[in-house]
Design a protein around this nucleic acid. Sequence first.
DNA 1: ACCTGAACACCGTTCAAGT
DNA 2: ACCTGAACACCGTTCAAGT
Lengths: 188, 188
Amino acid sequence: LPARAQTSTSAIVTAARTLLEERGPDALTMRDVATAVGVQAPSLYKRVRNRSDLIRLVLDDVMQELMTAQTAAATTGDPATDLRAILNGYRTFAHANPAAYALLYAPPTAPGEPDRSQRLSATLLHLVTELSGPADALPAARTLVAWANGFIAMELADSFHLGGDLPTAWTYGLTHILTAITPPHEAA
Amino acid sequence: LPARAQTSTSAIVTAARTLLEERGPDALTMRDVATAVGVQAPSLYKRVRNRSDLIRLVLDDVMQELMTAQTAAATTGDPATDLRAILNGYRTFAHANPAAYALLYAPPTAPGEPDRSQRLSATLLHLVTELSGPADALPAARTLVAWANGFIAMELADSFHLGGDLPTAWTYGLTHILTAITPPHEAA
DNA sequence: ACCTGAACACCGTTCAAGT
DNA sequence: ACCTGAACACCGTTCAAGT
């Protein structure tokens, strides 16, 4: 007789993430995830607390991948170069995983969600400190991250509706903001 | 005998918007909206096509309010001053209507959503053109809008987790980006 | 013309029962 | 220990029936 169906948390998370990207957040149902991993929906509750918890696990998985990419991108030691590489990496990742990225920076439906991007910001803040000096590092880093997230979110939402080249707009923004947060005596 | 319950599209939209802000997007159910306007859920389908359409009407209502605020904010004729006033106005509105604002710039679940922010951008683009000159106006405007939306979204999502003063970070970003998109010979 | 109750096909989630 | 089927309380939406 065939072995009874069995699954694992990581199989569930992978299936959920695939479903999220392929068919959108609303199609991420417990029944469809269960089908994808070969069990019935109630079995999922042995591995995850509920649907929100499953989405949290998916976003944790996404964050870990983003961390790995960030570490791989920041290697030259020159802060401006590394910042460019990191932010370009975010954008590449967002384009490859639009649904997951959108969820990552969406306001949480319920309050009291965890601090997922802390380690991502730490590296970035360090680089910005080298560029702008310690006094302005925090607001400068926030300017950069807010711009990058906003640009990517609008791009994904197809909110740039006046034509023109988006890669050009991205490069323009990145260059000008980096210049703006560099003190005058250090600018090229 | 009492008159039969009756409602209107505007009453439905208002009730939906209130429900959205008070209890979040998931609590915006057809049954609850119907109860709020004093009818049964099926009656709503005489006024709106479906739940997506109702949300679209809510966002149209929000956009019209934002447009009015923008017109009222840009009055001095000095582009830098007017831009500050407009972006500060967005932020004030977003804080007063966080759920609606979040929905406004959320990626659409279904593709083919309408171009809601076109007129908002037109005014902004005009001001940026005065500031940066026509050659760079489009990427400069996109830099500014992307930054503002990103900052506000992160603020609403409670994604700024390193302490510090957020109003300070907002002013820092606004000032530095405006400087960055102003050609050198026009800078103060 | 508009509202209603009943009904349908979905959800997330629980739980007793199986192995 | 994990999976299953049945069940519960919800959804959005449709539709025949009322007024």
